[in-house]
Design a protein around this nucleic acid. Structure first.
Lengths: 251, 251
DNA sequence: CGAAATCCTTGATATAGATCAAACCGATGG
DNA sequence: CCATCGGTTTGATCTATATCAAGGATTTCG
């Protein structure tokens, strides 16, 4: 719960990290975003890995944007079964304008810094500034598409396909962030424990572990330690994932 | 593919059926919607039960709102595995501003009438009329919540819970449409074949059939014929569905 | 340094749901 | 009236994944 006040300069490596609006690439519209007004109502907050940002049902009087780190949205049934329903990377938006309480548990998977906005003034700003609604609409539509892809995975893919899909998704987002374009030999760290992956994929952690081992044995992925992955052939991975090969990065 | 031009009067039983913006209840904001301009660019189109409205990947130069009937959004893998990712009831919105091609197969499950808007002028109208973006954002956020609920179902619920959940969802939406409030003894028709339910739930049609039989045998639902359901005790059904009992109608 | 805690892997077994197969039911049409 | 067809039910069997169980690797902490 440590509250940290960061200088904006610390964040400048992240394009537009200081506004809650995500941009696909370089920010071409910043001038529209009335940063002055945003300045007045925003604050930064940091969370340690493993810390819960907010519990489902809790009062949530802010919206936020992830600046650094990775957070998850999960739903839990009374008997403890858990399903991840959102994976939040830097620049992703958290919270829903017009809702009083959190609908999901939000958890910091790694150390996380969030840029928060008190909800009331943010909503007033939204009402005055159409470009915010419009941008938020685009982002929400992207998330809806991702959710639907995820539904196909949950409903119809085998355990092996699920694992391959997740690794592809993480690899792709990672590649996008680090500007390494379609170059081969993608390498990155899995930011999730086996259990979190299981919650993402609707599997048990044992099955996750077994399938990762199987993909390694079959040469689809290379593993250094338990978390560091390199993909020798991304198309092969996509095949294993059962995906249409289009790539799907851009809507 | 028959193109039908309906008089608006035919649709008046549906609140705001003639605009693409869904309202939760009675339309309190119609005056904001610039119906005059919408008038100029809209047209109606009807589809027969079973007909495909549009195939994934096809060029889609309109957006639309379901006026009557039920349509589905499905994703298909190369080997034919299918997952439903959207169930469209009257007043639901179809299509994505800013996208050229359809991302999913859209199929009419019953006879369907849609109110269509050519995309280009609709987008121009959106740009000029903030309330449309704002309303669309609200609707999309609702859909995202529904998708996340659906993800929990797909990833973690048992077959019996999935069936109970689906029946509860349909019953609830049906009750909402027909103004029958929380009155007991909810009765309605399942608008989906067993196969479509299977595609919704990530099951096979045989499992769907078996679990429906089981729920009938256990008195959770009553069946008349193959489609007509009555729910003697909605809370019991929700219990079977593994849901938090809150109801969840309003965000 | 040793103990405890996480996280992960692997094995043995159980089971929910898939698959394969057959037959039923109600509607439609010749 | 019978044949056909789409949708459905039910049975027998198979299998992918869950569950139960044990142990290995790292890190954390006293």
């Amino acid at each position: 719960m440590a509250r940290t006040s960061l200088l904006d300069d610390n964040l400048s490596s992240q394009a537009c990290a200081d506004c809650p609006i995500r941009h696909r690439a370089v920010c071409a519209r910043c001038e529209q975003h009335e940063l002055d007004r945003l300045e007045a109502i925003k604050y930064y907050r940091s969370y340690e890995a493993g810390q819960t940002v907010i519990w489902s049902g809790d009062r949530m009087d802010f919206v936020a944007s992830v600046v650094t780190g990775i957070a998850t949205l999960t739903q839990t049934m009374e008997d403890g079964r858990r399903q991840m329903v959102g994976l939040l990377l830097p620049s992703d938006f958290v919270g829903r304008p017009g809702r009083l309480t959190a609908a999901y548990d939000v958890t910091a998977t790694t150390d996380v810094v969030m840029c928060c906005f008190r909800k009331k003034p943010f909503e007033e700003l939204m009402a005055r500034t159409p470009s915010i609604s419009q941008r938020l609409l685009e982002m929400t539509l992207d998330e809806l598409d991702a959710a639907r892809e995820w539904m196909l995975l949950l409903g119809r893919k085998t355990a092996r396909e699920k694992i391959a899909s997740l690794i592809a998704i993480i690899g792709r987002r990672d590649a996008a962030l680090s500007l390494r374009s379609a170059g081969n030999d993608l390498t990155f760290d899995l930011p999730l424990t086996r259990e979190a992956m299981a919650d993402y994929l609707g599997l048990t952690l044992e099955t996750v572990s077994r399938q990762i081992s199987a993909l390694r044995k079959d040469g689809v992925i290379l593993l250094e330690g338990k978390r560091h992955v390199t993909i020798p052939d991304f198309d092969r991975l996509l095949e294993e994932a059962g995906d249409d090969s289009d790539g799907g990065l851009l809507a």
